[in-house]
Simulated scan of single mutants.
Amino acid sequence: MTALKDTVAELAPMMQGTVPYDAFIVSEGASVIAGHAGETMLSLFPEGSLEGVTYARPEIWSDWQDFAALAEELKTYADALAVAAPNGLEPALPPPRDMAGMDHSAMAMTPAPQVDEGFTIAELMGYGERTQEVQVARGTSDPATLAFDLTTLAADDLFTRISATCSSCHSQYRAGRN
């Protein structure tokens, strides 16, 4: 955990723009985070590891599935940051497509998909009622697809996601020393 703390502390000033951005250092730091996340992190918390000096709370084991999802989420974001580091603080742009020389005669026009009307402000704030229930749960996305999409983001966006994952985990599963 010390390696994670030190790495986050090293990368934070770059992400905030207070020190020059270095894609190599960001990529290496992301690899350190990824190397301590996922299964590696889970291996640090075997049953009964609350004995002795620890910051861990017993909820780690009663909510193991959620804790494991956070550990994997951290790995996914860190792996993506290792790849996306060259994007810098701006998202990567897709490569331009040259369509001038293409034969367009076989291209069929498909109708636009039906678009949901979205949420009202009251619904977003929890005051309005929605006729359709939307459920989002951790672990519902295919990690490979998620990681692919994430690599197009700006490094600071991914770093923010890493920080939020750490914060979420700490708020649920970290306590003071015993």
Rank of each mutant, 00 (worst) to 15 (best):
A154G: 04
L93M: 13
A56S: 15
V26S: 00
A137D: 10
L50V: 05
S31T: 00
A122N: 07
A175Q: 15
A23M: 15
S141R: 09
A80K: 02
L70D: 02
T120S: 03
S105D: 11
A23T: 12
E10K: 11
D156C: 07
A82I: 01
A71T: 01
A3Q: 15
A71S: 04
L153H: 02
P91K: 06
E72Y: 03
A85G: 09
A71Y: 00
E47Q: 06
R138P: 07
S49L: 05
G52M: 11
F119W: 06
P94K: 10
R177S: 03
A68V: 09
G88R: 03
A78C: 11
D22G: 02
T7Q: 02
A106Q: 10
A108G: 04
L50C: 04
A122W: 07
R57E: 13
L42V: 10
D79K: 08
A100E: 14
L81T: 00
P94D: 13
M14H: 02
S49D: 07
P46S: 06
A37R: 00
S43E: 08
D63C: 09
D149Y: 09
I25F: 02
V8N: 04
H104G: 12
Y55D: 15
L4A: 08
G17Y: 09
Q114T: 10
W64F: 15
A68Y: 04
V136N: 12
L158Q: 01
E117I: 04
Y55L: 14
A12T: 09
T2G: 10
A164L: 14
P143A: 03
S171H: 12
I25K: 02
T7A: 05
D157T: 00
A147G: 11
Y127E: 13
P58T: 14
F119G: 00
L124A: 05
A3W: 10
L74S: 00
W61H: 02
A144Q: 10
T151A: 06
D103E: 05
T140K: 13
